[in-house]
Amino acid sequence: MSSSPMSKTYSFSTLQQASEYFLEQGWTDGLPINLPTEHEVSKFMALSGQSNTDIIGIEPVKGREITIEKVAINSVMAGCKPEYFPIILTAVEALVESKFNLHGITASTMGAGILTLVTGSIAKEIGLNGGISLFGPGHQANATIGRALRLVVINCTGSRSGEIDKATLGHAGKYTWCITENEDFRPWPNTGEDRGFSKNANTVSVFAGLSPIQVSNHSSQNPENILRSFRDALFAAGPNQGEIVIIFCPEHVLSFKKAGWTKNQIRDFLYEMAVRTNDEWGFGSIPPGSRPTGSEVTHSALTPESFTLLVGGGAAGAFSCVIPLWSGGVGSQSVTKELI
């Protein structure tokens, strides 16, 4: 049930003029966009079966009502195909949940991106990449879904660089950051299953991800030795992380699989391994707040369940990564939703 667009329209005599206008207004991420003509936007609206006035969510701090039409416009701008739209709408629903704290993560100097994880058969159906060059470039679904969400943040919540967005550095994932797992190598349940959804469910999760810290270990096949390589990266994230994401590359995962290690064994090992005294924390990477001191021991994670473990990346190369989340994985909680 679509209807006529509710959004204001602008007319231009040339494509170049229209494109430049969007850039000048700060309505893009700095890159040129696909122009959101009524015709292109209508393809997304038709697929959604929703009316142009329907609201997908309300940004909880500023009270902005985000309509499906606005999400469709920004999805066209990002270069999405209409079949990606259900994922984008589900992600927007997740983003505006209070516990995700979208305003905080997109305004903060800490500079988080939105890491979107898709699980289930929908990922393969639309061509989402979970393998070689996981974080891109070169894969339209990954590149444009993540970009659509960033454009929604810019245009629908006003978190534009230098205005509400006050990131000191930010990182490349703020342009676009959408992945799925490498299903050819995943030996354990996916994140959707871990969070209570059925094995066959299509789910979308959003995480307030800081820049990934790559971890290399080409020398070990033993699970304990591989996991010890993550110690410094976990220390860089800071103590008492409420949530933290680790993406294991297939080479590392094959070693875990060969040794019969489960996700929970890995979580327990990481939790017990990445500990040090508060004095040591105080001389490392120090998060905002008071400098830790004393001989008491503190873990890098609050609990073993703080670790979200994923399998991703190409089959060759023993490169995994740790992705710390914004504000110690406490100020924003990740959200998982079943596909709309």
Partner: peptide
């Protein structure tokens, strides 16, 4: 602006 290419506003006001 001259009538030609018509595009939709992507923004939401506060």
């Amino acid at each position: 602006m001259v009538e030609g290419i018509r595009v939709l506003d992507p923004t939401i006001d506060a």
